[in-house]
Measured scan of single mutants.
Amino acid sequence: MQIFVKTLTGKTITLEVEPSDTIENVKAKIQDKEGIPPDQQRSIFAGKQLEDGRTLSDYNIQKESTLHLVLR
């Protein structure tokens, strides 16, 4: 499925993911596309910070959902 990741600069990245993917996985995909190390990424969805060990389905993130990426 496709999800979108919006950065603070307003750029939107499209990722191909599975509901079973962990947040860690997703951060690795963002690193592949953007070169941002996962330890600098904070992902926010529906106002909640997403934890690395959880999966997209844990957070009820579905296709075409938009995550927000904040850098630390």
Rank of each mutant, 00 (worst) to 15 (best):
M1W: 07
M1V: 04
M1S: 02
M1T: 02
M1A: 02
Q2S: 10
Q2V: 15
Q2H: 12
Q2C: 09
Q2P: 06
I3K: 01
I3C: 03
I3G: 01
I3F: 01
I3V: 05
F4C: 04
V5S: 00
V5K: 00
V5G: 01
V5F: 04
K6F: 06
K6Q: 09
K6L: 09
T7D: 06
T7S: 05
T7I: 14
T7K: 02
L8T: 13
L8K: 07
L8S: 14
L8H: 14
T9D: 14
T9C: 14
T9K: 11
T9M: 11
T9N: 12
T9W: 14
T9E: 12
G10V: 01
G10A: 00
G10C: 07
G10R: 03
G10S: 02
G10W: 04
G10H: 04
K11Q: 08
K11E: 09
K11G: 06
T12S: 05
T12A: 03
I13E: 01
I13P: 00
I13A: 02
T14M: 12
T14R: 10
T14Y: 07
T14D: 03
T14Q: 08
T14P: 06
L15Q: 00
L15F: 03
L15K: 00
L15W: 00
L15M: 04
L15C: 01
E16D: 11
E16S: 09
E16C: 13
E16F: 13
V17A: 04
V17K: 00
E18K: 13
E18L: 14
E18S: 14
P19Q: 07
P19Y: 07
P19K: 07
P19G: 07
S20Y: 10
S20Q: 09
S20I: 06
S20P: 01
S20L: 09
D21T: 09
D21R: 01
D21V: 03
T22N: 03
T22D: 03
T22K: 08
T22Y: 05
I23M: 05
I23D: 00
I23R: 01
I23W: 11
I23E: 01
I23F: 03
I23N: 01
E24T: 07
E24F: 14
E24P: 02
N25T: 13
N25G: 08
N25R: 14
N25I: 14
N25A: 13
V26A: 00
V26H: 00
V26D: 01
V26M: 06
V26Q: 00
V26R: 02
K27P: 00
K27A: 07
K27V: 08
A28P: 00
A28L: 14
A28H: 12
K29R: 10
K29I: 05
K29G: 01
K29C: 03
I30V: 09
I30R: 00
I30S: 03
Q31L: 12
Q31T: 10
Q31S: 12
Q31F: 15
Q31V: 07
Q31A: 14
Q31Y: 15
D32M: 13
D32N: 11
D32G: 08
D32P: 03
D32L: 14
K33N: 07
K33A: 12
K33R: 10
E34P: 03
E34C: 15
E34L: 15
E34W: 15
E34T: 15
G35S: 06
G35L: 05
G35M: 05
G35T: 03
G35Y: 04
I36K: 06
I36M: 08
I36D: 07
I36L: 08
I36R: 04
I36P: 07
P37A: 10
P37V: 06
P37I: 08
P37Q: 09
P37M: 08
P37R: 10
P37D: 10
P38I: 15
P38S: 13
P38V: 15
P38T: 15
D39V: 09
D39E: 13
D39F: 09
D39W: 14
D39C: 12
D39R: 10
D39P: 08
D39K: 09
D39M: 08
D39Y: 11
Q40P: 07
Q40R: 11
Q40A: 11
Q41W: 15
Q41C: 11
Q41L: 15
Q41P: 07
Q41S: 09
Q41K: 06
R42A: 14
R42S: 13
R42E: 13
R42H: 15
R42N: 13
S43M: 15
S43F: 15
S43Y: 15
I44V: 09
I44C: 15
I44Y: 15
I44N: 05
I44A: 03
I44F: 15
F45Y: 12
F45A: 05
F45E: 04
F45N: 05
F45W: 13
A46C: 12
A46S: 08
G47N: 07
G47F: 05
G47D: 09
G47L: 09
K48H: 12
K48P: 04
K48E: 13
K48F: 12
K48C: 11
Q49D: 14
Q49A: 12
Q49E: 15
Q49W: 15
Q49I: 15
Q49S: 10
Q49T: 14
L50H: 02
L50W: 03
L50Q: 01
L50I: 04
L50G: 01
L50C: 04
L50N: 01
L50T: 02
E51A: 07
E51V: 08
E51R: 07
E51H: 07
E51P: 02
D52H: 05
D52M: 05
D52I: 05
D52G: 06
D52P: 09
G53N: 13
G53W: 14
G53Q: 11
G53F: 13
G53M: 11
R54V: 06
R54G: 06
R54F: 12
R54K: 13
R54M: 12
R54H: 11
T55R: 09
T55P: 10
T55Q: 06
T55H: 05
T55C: 01
L56M: 04
L56V: 06
L56E: 01
L56Q: 01
S57C: 03
S57T: 06
S57L: 13
S57E: 11
S57V: 06
S57M: 12
S57W: 07
S57R: 12
D58V: 01
D58W: 10
D58A: 04
D58R: 00
Y59A: 03
Y59S: 03
Y59W: 03
Y59H: 03
Y59P: 03
N60F: 07
N60E: 08
N60C: 05
N60W: 04
N60Q: 09
N60G: 14
I61G: 02
I61F: 03
I61Y: 00
I61M: 03
I61P: 02
Q62K: 11
Q62V: 12
Q62Y: 08
Q62P: 07
Q62S: 10
Q62I: 11
K63E: 12
K63L: 05
K63P: 15
K63N: 15
K63G: 12
K63H: 15
E64T: 04
E64C: 10
E64W: 14
E64Q: 10
E64L: 11
E64H: 14
S65R: 02
S65K: 03
S65E: 08
S65T: 08
S65Q: 11
T66H: 15
T66G: 02
T66Q: 05
L67D: 00
L67M: 06
H68Y: 15
H68C: 09
H68T: 12
H68R: 07
L69C: 04
L69W: 02
L69Q: 04
L69D: 02
L69H: 03
L69A: 01
L69K: 02
L69N: 02
V70Y: 11
V70L: 11
V70P: 02
V70S: 07
V70D: 05
L71M: 12
L71E: 09
L71I: 12
R72N: 12
R72K: 13
R72Y: 12
R72S: 12
R72V: 14
R72Q: 11
